[in-house]
Design a protein around this nucleic acid. Structure first.
Lengths: 225, 225
DNA sequence: CTTTTTTTCTAATATATATTAGAATACGGT
DNA sequence: ACCGTATTCTAATATATATTAGAAAAAAAG
């Protein structure tokens, strides 16, 4: 919702909007798979039966194109999370909200086409100017997570001894990383989301083990039996 | 330990080994900061007061150089984790081993120079050939983690209802992501490692909250009070 | 069936930078 | 100081590909 070159508001409900979309789709797919430097304009154009030069009718430059893709990726994820959170009953607990955010973000990374995945992977590949603007935009989304965690802590739902920014980055990192390794197959995105939620909220330690562990010095635990 | 072009064993204890090292160091730093396509050979050369062409005396190509950096990054991390694990007392528990692995990997990402960080970030930026070899090498390191987790599960130390490959990827993802956001400052690497361990092993949920939560249907928890 | 506008193509241009060949320099040993 | 080897530099070369200008074609309007 931040960076859109003049073009989207004027008035004329052009039909070339369709082409623009297909260019973006192809670009997102290509950039995601082959990276920024690994994707030529001609790759994108070929993908939709066009010539490279023609892309310039729709986008002023290769950089503008990749920035548009990244913007969309971030905005879609942000919007999806906001949306699902807003659908929760007003009395939903902090942990539920956290769970929903985790699940939605992950599904966005794994399903929501290539935009999200591209926006994550490209951050360090694009020219500095784009990266800076992108990181600035990420802050707004980060703030949403910060608030989720802060609220949960204030509500006493999450432990007091873990730094919240570490928690936030670790969670988002675990989720974003999935863009790298996920291959449709055995594990469904839902299942993955469930497991990550379980880990993040309740930890990996087995139930019976947990109680005992918390009573021992932090670095000298032994597995029983 | 996998891919080293002939050169390291012959015999002549050349002194240019020093230059080679400084080239690698500069390359790791540059590649890490500006990405693969964002780093020119002349950038690397400048960094150590050389001319771009001279690099070819030490490396056959830009690609060979970046591959060497990535190899080192992976190997160092792998070696560091193996090393610290081997130092543990023979009777160390599964959870302790997991903790040590997490801490060591993270410290490697945050401190151990730029190699580790570069090897993580560059994966999707380098030419496909390099990426494939690199991913193959990662498997060996991944196997170490898989074993850690499988052993822990067999030993009953970790819960049975979370898929181990999801857990593994989530953990490594959370750790690797730190390469993106960490800035030396308030939080020390040790502290970050501690917090992530706490999350991964025991979860974010507050202690008193935890017991109650486990007794309620999974998606309908409410924070108390 | 024109005319106008939008969209795409063709064919240069322009630039950047990896790579190479050969000259120049530094260096170690004698 | 001299020789040979190791190392670095200089100055082309070569290629790739983003970008642009203007021609063509398609679509819309009339």
């Amino acid at each position: 919702m931040a960076r859109q070159r003049a073009e989207a508001d004027e008035a004329p409900p052009k039909k070339s909007e369709l082409t623009r979309q297909s260019i973006l789709d192809a670009a997102a797919r290509m950039f995601r798979m082959h990276g920024y430097s690994g994707t030529r304009l001609s790759d994108i154009a070929d993908e939709i039966g066009m010539k490279a030069g023609s892309l310039y009718y729709h986008f002023p430059s290769r950089e503008a194109l990749v920035e548009a893709v990244m913007d969309l990726g971030l905005q879609r994820t942000h919007a999806a999370v906001l949306d699902r959170l807003s659908m929760l009953p007003a009395d939903a607990g902090h942990l539920t909200r956290l769970q929903v955010a985790i699940e939605t973000h992950l599904l966005s990374v794994l399903e929501q086409e290539d935009y999200t995945s591209a926006s994550i992977k490209l951050i360090w590949q694009v020219p500095a100017g784009i990266r800076e603007r992108q990181i600035a935009d990420q802050r707004a989304y980060g703030a949403l997570w910060r608030k989720l965690l802060e609220d949960a802590r204030k509500g006493g739902a999450i432990r007091a001894d873990v730094d919240l920014s570490v928690a936030r980055m670790a969670i988002v990192g675990a989720l974003n990383w999935a863009a790298d390794w996920y291959k449709p197959g055995k594990l469904t995105p839902k299942r993955i989301a469930r497991d990550i939620c379980a880990m993040v909220l309740n930890g990996l330690v087995a139930e019976d083990e947990a109680a005992a562990a918390k009573r021992r010095p932090a670095t000298t635990k032994r597995a029983k039996k």
